[in-house]
Simulated scan of single mutants.
Amino acid sequence: MRLAQFFAIIAIMDLIGDITAIRIPLPQPGDVMPQELYPEAREEAEQAREQYAFALEAQHDELQEDPLLIALGNARAAREAADREIRHLLAYGREFHGERPYKLESLAQASGMTPSGIRTAYGNSEIDTVARGIGRNPDSRRAQPPATTEPS
């Protein structure tokens, strides 16, 4: 192994270590209550760091891509998944909760959105996904297809 390759590997490992420390901070004394659980919480965080660093290194080796760009892509994917989950939960609260759907104000407060944003946060595809997931049709009249009249 040439010296330049060795230093490149060390630089990547340092980068992965830094990203891991950002992604999984270690708890500090006083962060964990009761305090006697602190050693266990720290050990769990250290194990999570090892697993994350190993996975990030494996992704780097497989993709031959910068670990920071991989971590950012993973964080973006997690954010998109969380946004999708919020849309599904909002659809459930408004469309699948009987005659009295959750109020816009309480959903807005819990989701960090505005009441008007709740109305447009989800659509038919989210309603369909929730219906498939819970195995029933929406209760809300807003989500029901318009009634068709039979020809006489």
Rank of each mutant, 00 (worst) to 15 (best):
E99N: 06
A55V: 03
E95H: 10
R49I: 02
E43M: 04
P146K: 11
E65C: 06
D128M: 00
T120S: 07
A82K: 15
T149E: 09
R23G: 00
D66Q: 10
I22T: 15
T20A: 07
R141D: 11
Q144I: 02
L72T: 12
E99S: 04
A45G: 07
A77E: 13
F7Y: 12
G135N: 10
P67Y: 05
A121W: 02
E36R: 14
R100W: 07
E99Y: 12
H60W: 15
T120L: 00
M13D: 06
R132G: 08
L3Q: 13
I12P: 02
V130P: 10
E150P: 03
H60C: 02
F7P: 01
E50H: 12
A121S: 12
M13P: 00
E65A: 09
L89Y: 12
A11C: 09
T129E: 08
P145M: 11
R79P: 08
L68F: 13
P146F: 08
A78G: 01
R79T: 07
I24Y: 15
S111Y: 05
V130A: 05
E44M: 14
A71W: 10
D61G: 10
L15A: 13
A53G: 05
R84L: 00
G112P: 03
Q28S: 11
H88P: 01
L3Y: 13
D139E: 00
Q51S: 07
P27T: 07
A82D: 11
L15T: 15
P145T: 15
V130F: 02
P115S: 03
T149I: 09
L104P: 01
Q35H: 10
L90A: 03
A110C: 03
E126L: 00
D139N: 01
E43G: 08
K103D: 14
I9P: 08
E85K: 14
E40K: 15
E36H: 13
